[in-house]
Nucleic acid binder design. Structure first.
Lengths: 157, 157
DNA sequence: ACATTAGATGTATTCCATTTGAATGTATAG
DNA sequence: CTATACATTCAAATGGAATACATCTAATGT
């Protein structure tokens, strides 16, 4: 019972974009932040773009930004997109499928799971803005950090 | 977002055992019923036995039976056992872990998921007893089927 | 006692999905 | 025109799950 890394990375990227406000953030930058595969993140970003969560900007100083305010993006919608909504079990070819009550129960449980996520917005996750901005090394009006080009590296990696 | 086949098979086996009442059912028989791997099911049965869900009986006419009545076994406990209770995401090494609110939200959603399953018992799933007994080809007092040695085969397999 | 049956355990191999990597195309700012 | 960054496709690799094989232990019927 684990979220795929696909979902994991998508959520992380969205958090970073939410924290970065209107500024464009390149895929490369996000990948470097978390120390994850650049190519993989590209595909994830592609999917997020097609689904209307983010807006890609091409060209020299391009990058990604949220297509809508973080307060209007629910986590449920995100997870639904990255994980898919298909059933938890595959009953094709199961002998007892016609009499089995399991799929219904599992669907109900899944619905409860997503209902909780529907109750949270991206802005709720990224609410500790100052802490996150510091971790992302985003310069603020008060006091920008000394080296914005090379973001903090993950110590455990 | 799928249940592992491990969980799937465990649930199916438990349903068959619940439907079979006090009678012993061999692992081989269950495997043949669903057309799944005998050896794999053995390991799953092992785990179920160790966890106290089923009671294995060795020897010539041995087999498996439920350790407790089906009405006292909750689906939540079963899924918790087969899927494990660890977190949905692995945050070790994630840069923003200290400020990230995601794990809490996911844990809450997971809890809601399991809470639904906790509300159902194995007996609720196997409630259509007569249909299931027919599918499992279990002889009844009224009219036993003609060939109890060779159970019905899955048509789609 | 002995053979038979069924579960218990361990190892190894196969299989599949996810993840990653590489190469190429497309668009845009300067 | 060129450098940069996203878009797309294909192929390799990694890791976990599922399966197969081999062997052992325990209980039962003869």
């Amino acid at each position: 019972m684990k979220l795929s890394r696909h979902s994991d990375y998508a959520l992380r990227a969205m958090i970073q974009l939410a924290t970065s406000g209107d500024e464009l953030v390149s895929i490369r930058h996000i990948a470097q932040t978390y120390g994850i595969s650049h190519n993989h993140l590209m595909k994830i970003a592609q999917g997020l773009g097609r689904a209307g969560f983010i807006e890609p900007v091409r060209g020299r100083h391009g990058g990604l930004r949220l297509a809508r305010p973080a307060s209007e993006i629910s986590l449920g919608a995100l997870v639904r997109h990255t994980e898919g909504e298909d059933s938890l079990v595959d009953c094709t070819g199961c002998l007892i499928a016609p009499a089995c009550g399991l799929p219904d129960v599992l669907a109900e449980a899944m619905q409860a799971f997503l209902a909780v996520l529907d109750g949270y917005r991206l802005s709720d996750i990224a609410n500790r803005s100052h802490m996150l901005r510091a971790l992302f090394d985003i310069p603020t009006s008060a006091g920008p950090s000394q080296n914005a080009a090379d973001p903090v590296q993950c110590p455990a990696d």
